[in-house]
Design a protein around this nucleic acid. Structure first.
Lengths: 333, 333
DNA sequence: TGCTCTGGTGCAAGCGCTTGCATTATGAGG
DNA sequence: CCTCATAATGCAAGCGCTTGCACCAGAGCA
């Protein structure tokens, strides 16, 4: 059942049906009504592929994320989707599960779909992909990774500032033995957070001791990280986690081990996902405005005239949200 | 940059390039190598739309869910996606946000995309949509909603059994004042859970008192439901929640109100999402095997010969998972 | 009445790919 | 060296839609 069928039933040409469908050109209102009726009766819906093929570009946006399970990515997706729907776009997600190869083929697939714009919200990126996008002049936005390119909007988060804020806060609460719980990855923004942590700690001098541990980027990883941490002799009074998801695992493991939070140990997260309010004790964390990011991604993907001259960059500074999981360092050693 | 360009560069016809791309027919290995080289050099990727248009069906599965934010749906998506990738399919998600109208247009869009199969994992459904799918002979799977149709696999969860198990368990722990925290919706499986609850309670006779409250299907809704509950005179010793997400809100609100769980009140959830292990106290809940469901959806969508004669139905029985949020009813009144 | 103008509509050429069939290399057997 | 399967490849017709352009009927004007 195709445009043709509708046309026949309404006794007009396919072209006219197309015009009615797309509100293009001028169609006599009586004709339009006839066509609409035929569409209704036949329960006609257009073939997306034919439309895209004939029409050139689509009103579809592509979003590629590393891990939809992480609420951070999910939130961005939802905001983007909401924004897109409000403007008559739709969005296609692809999940790479941190697999660069899969990411690569996802990008190709998206381009093969002739998306109107492509957003990459991932933890790592192959520079060749960016080269490709730049060269093909695809409208694109990347979050958090890669160096700026012409015509590709780059949204970044100032992790240094964020980590500094947390560190500053913890020190102001008297913490002098601080641990960082991170992710295995050596690439991307997650390792930025770690190296920044080390920088900041070193700047504090010998007065403050610190260590870092790493495990997988999720709840179970958080639990294991704590076990690993406590299997050494280091007894932190504060644990800074690379994201909220891990922090939830950390909290849980500490509770299971009978360690009081924040009485004995303070814990902080990163991202301020919904979960951070739900866990007990509610997590002190750094807020990253996902709604704002989502909206900016949409804007970058659809803005009529992306200044292709200068690489654009937007920097976002996270803000500290103090909840229940942090407090003054215990006085006794 | 199209098939044509590749063909030219490899000095073959477009047809041959197509054959190489799809591993169809016989191509001399030297020719194949030449084509592959050209593809590589040109960084060619096929136009998905042209391919779908010319080829007829695609290897794309459609999934329509009510609310991706709910980890239950998300988990199903992930399993389905994983399964799909393993078999060379890809999956397109659409989020309806509980909006029936949006669901309708999503279905049309999916069909317009000529998906190989369409899964509907939603809380409510317009029977007309099912009629449509049945009539158009689209391969489809629905979870939890709608009456069985020819050629549409229907996967259901035996909520009655589930609710009975929870109720039975709570009664065995001595609970006699039980509240049900549900969702506003009057349609679909969520209201099934409620009506089953009422049935079961009534069967217990005057010995057991009960009530129900309803709010939105999320964390905040759970909190509000507790406030609403306690603004009445009813003081339950157990609260049965329609899903884990709401239960998390319930737990939190109770803690804020100084009510001890499970000392004073036992709380149960539904679904056994990851969150139920993370909250404190860890939630007693009903496990619904999302991985199994996801796999069955995939199978139903791709099985070579769906018996179009008899409507197929699969029933899943949830199992009780006892964690920390439940215990014996307090002895004092 | 004959002319131009314009709102409405139809025609037909693609968009980039697949695929059945025709056609041409290729090599084995006579 | 020719014949004829058979293996490789090319041709061309679509797939269902959009869109520039041609066309036609009336309205308005001289």
């Amino acid at each position: 059942m195709s445009l043709e069928d509708v046309a026949q039933r309404a006794r007009v040409s396919p072209a006219t049906v197309s015009r009615v469908l797309n509100n293009l050109g001028v169609v006599k209102s009586s004709t339009r009504a006839r066509v609409l009726k035929a569409i209704e009766e036949l329960k006609y819906y257009p073939n997306v592929h034919a439309r895209a093929l004939a029409g050139g570009v689509s009103r579809t946006l592509g979003l590629i994320v590393s891990n939809l399970e992480n609420p951070f990515f999910l939130d961005i997706f939802r905001v983007l989707e909401q924004e897109a729907h409000a403007h008559g776009y739709e969005v296609l997600v692809a999940n790479t599960d941190y697999d660069l190869q899969w990411q690569n083929s996802s990008v190709k697939l998206m381009l093969g779909r002739r998306v109107a714009g492509l957003a990459l919200v991932v933890s790592e990126i192959d520079p060749a992909v960016l080269d490709e996008l730049e060269q093909r002049k695809v409208r694109a936005v990347v979050y958090d990774v890669g160096s700026p390119r012409r015509g590709i909007l780059s949204i970044k988060c100032n992790y240094r500032k964020g980590v500094e804020r947390v560190a500053e806060y913890l020190r102001s609460m008297g913490h002098k033995r601080i641990a960082f719980v991170g992710h295995h990855t050596t690439l991307g923004p997650l390792s930025d957070r770690k190296s920044t942590f080390i920088d900041v700690m070193q700047r504090y001098g010998p007065d403050v001791q610190f260590t870092t541990v790493a495990d997988s980027d999720d709840y179970a990883g958080g639990r294991r990280a704590v076990q690993q941490l406590y299997s050494s002799n280091f007894r932190p009074t504060a644990i800074l986690c690379v994201n909220d998801f891990m922090a939830a695992g950390v909290l849980r493991q500490l509770r299971d081990m009978g360690v009081d939070v924040p009485g004995q140990v303070s814990v902080t997260g990163f991202d301020n996902i919904t979960l951070s309010e739900i866990v007990y004790p509610a997590l002190t964390t750094l807020h990253i405005p996902r709604d704002q990011i989502g909206r900016q991604i949409f804007a970058g993907l659809t803005e009529p005239k992306p200044s292709t001259k200068v690489p654009q960059e937007i920097i976002i500074t996270p803000e500290l949200v103090v909840r229940e999981s942090t407090g003054r360092a215990p006085t006794e050693s």
